[in-house]
Nucleic acid binder design. Structure first.
Length: 485
RNA sequence: GUCCCUAUCGUCUAGAGGCCUAGGACACCGGGUUUUCAUCCCGGCAACCAGGGUUCGAAUCCCUGUGGGGAUGCCA
């Protein structure tokens, strides 16, 4: 393997669901690697045992696979840098941490854990105070460890001077070392913290570009100090702008569950197409620098450039996602749409199923998300209650009185109609309109209301009456007549 | 509190000193086509946070202020 191959990793913790923000991080990490012929690695960050959720890793695999982000290395596919699950690497971290203790870049800490309230707020009295163990005699500390006293290992940060590093999207970041805290490297339970495990794993896995959210911008100098203490070359940092959600009161905050469906799977369950979700989030914080918005996955790979990454946070806009989803739906092959929409329609075993191909053709241009479909076709399965005021229509000049007359005249004609197809049903009403010298829209409106009870329907009377079948259609016209009389 | 980041239409964004009376898209509002709705066309509304500099010239560079977000966990 050539030494300059780009290697990025996606390092989620198995929490049970994949936030679209995480998915976008994965997407960009994937694109950065693949647009440069590199490798994309999946690593599971499960160092917090309390957070472990059964089946959560499968959600990650499933989401990445569905989204098309196939990893070259990972727990399930293997690779030469394994294991790819941090809990399985547990024994690797302590020697590294102890190496830092030896060199003076870290120290043993015997303090109790800092207390935090339910909001994660530090409720200890002097949160910013330096730990008392920082200046313990190393020999004494070592003896206490040897005696079996529980300990953690903290990073010993030299508070003098400033740290500057360069981020691929945010540019130069400068932070005074005195604001950096002596973060925990190795927890009491022997597990590394996320921050420490990342440095060790990213280095030992040869990761060249660390792609993560911008919330890590201020803590990155601590990582660099660690790299320096080991004598390692820090990776290229690519910090990503955050994704925000709008609260009910109009303020914005980091996108979370309270803003609606924010996991890939829940979005998919609502009827958003995976490709549309991926396309949409690709544009949330990245621009191809032209006016195009719809990209195939392959196009994304070939057009992606780090320089197109934006610095400011972006608000997740469900309206735009919906629009993009509708574009993807319209672009689907009709047969494909008929197939995938059918599962959402919930029509198994009904008369509607028989005519699904025809209905799907009607639905395809007017569906934004698949979950809207049951509502759009409910009137076909069961006649809805409606008010005769629905017969009023300004454009076609229809009203309940005129509708009564029209339906009275049309009813026997339909009863006599043998060939019951969309074409013949429409032909009949067309001929009727011509004979009566009325605009076609008028009897069409009256008929539509009578057989559907809805002002808006996919398709017109021809299709609707076909799906309903002759007996049901006649029945509904008779009912309308009764209401109008 | 301290630190970091950020700032163009309501939203996503283009814009890297003159091409900008600021472009595209979503949403919204009109109009046309259509048996309804939708699709599809066509049009409209709508933004450079404020104040100082630098410059012949600033949305673009610098400073300050303000707004917004984030970090400050033995969470990730």
């Amino acid at each position: 393997m050539s030494s300059n191959t780009v290697r990025t990793r996606f390092a989620p913790s198995p929490t049970g669901f994949m936030h679209v923000g995480n998915l976008r991080t994965a997407l960009y990490a994937y694109l950065i690697a693949k647009s440069q012929g590199g490798k994309f690695i999946l690593r599971i960050e499960d160092t917090d045992r309390n957070r472990y959720v059964e089946g959560a890793v499968d959600v990650i695999y499933r989401t990445l696979a569905t989204a098309g982000l196939l990893h070259d290395e990972g727990p399930d596919v293997g690779g030469e840098y394994g294991p790819y699950v941090q809990s399985e690497r547990k024994n690797m971290y302590r020697p590294y941490a102890e190496q830092l203790v030896e060199s003076g870049a870290a120290y043993y800490c015997f303090c109790d854990k800092t207390e935090h309230d339910s909001n994660g707020e530090d409720v200890s009295e002097n949160p910013d105070q330096e730990c008392c163990c920082r200046n313990l005699d190393p020999a004494i500390a070592k003896a206490r460890v040897a005696a079996g006293e529980p300990f953690a290992i903290r990073q010993k940060i030299n508070k003098e001077g400033i740290s500057t590093y360069s981020d691929a999207v945010f540019g130069e970041i400068t932070i005074e070392n005195k604001v950096l805290d002596d973060q925990i490297l190795l927890k009491r339970d022997g597990m590394p913290t996320y921050n420490f495990a990342n440095v060790i794993d990213d280095h030992t896995m040869n990761i060249t570009h660390v792609v993560r959210g911008s919330e890590y911008l201020p803590s990155t100098p601590k990582y660099n100090l660690l790299y320096a203490a080991f004598g390692w070359q820090p990776p290229e940092y690519v910090h990503l702008p955050m994704i925000m959600g709008r609260n009910e009161d109009g303020t914005i905050a980091k996108l979370s569950k309270r803003h609606g469906s924010v996991s890939f799977e829940s979005l998919a369950a609502e009827g958003y197409l995976p490709a549309a979700i991926v396309n949409y989030i690709a544009l949330l914080g990245w621009s191809p620098k032209n006016d195009r918005e719809i990209f195939s996955f392959e196009e994304l790979v070939s057009m992606f450039k780090i320089s197109g990454l934006n610095k400011s946070a972006a608000v997740f806009d469900y309206d735009k996602l919906k629009w993009m989803n509708s574009e993807y739906i319209k672009a689907m092959a009709p047969a494909e749409f008929a197939k995938c929409s059918k599962e959402f329609a919930k029509i198994a075993g009904t008369n509607v199923e028989t005519y699904w191909d025809m209905l799907a053709g009607l639905l395809q241009p007017r569906t934004e998300i698949l979950s809207e479909i049951p509502g759009k076709i409910a009137f076909l399965l069961e006649q809805p209650e409606y008010d005769t005021s629905l017969f009023n229509n300004k454009k076609s000049k229809c009203n309940p009185e005129i509708a009564l007359t029209i339906l009275q005249e049309l009813l026997p004609m339909y009863e006599a109609l043998e060939n019951w197809t969309p074409e013949s049903i429409t032909e009949l009403v067309t001929g009727y309109a011509q004979t009566k010298e009325m605009k076609l829209g008028l009897p069409m409106w009256a008929l539509r209301i009578a057989v559907s009870g809805c002002a808006v329907t996919p398709g017109g009377p021809g299709e609707i009456m076909t799906v309903l079948g002759k007996p049901e259609a006649i029945k509904r016209i008779n009912q309308a007549l009764k209401m109008l009389a």
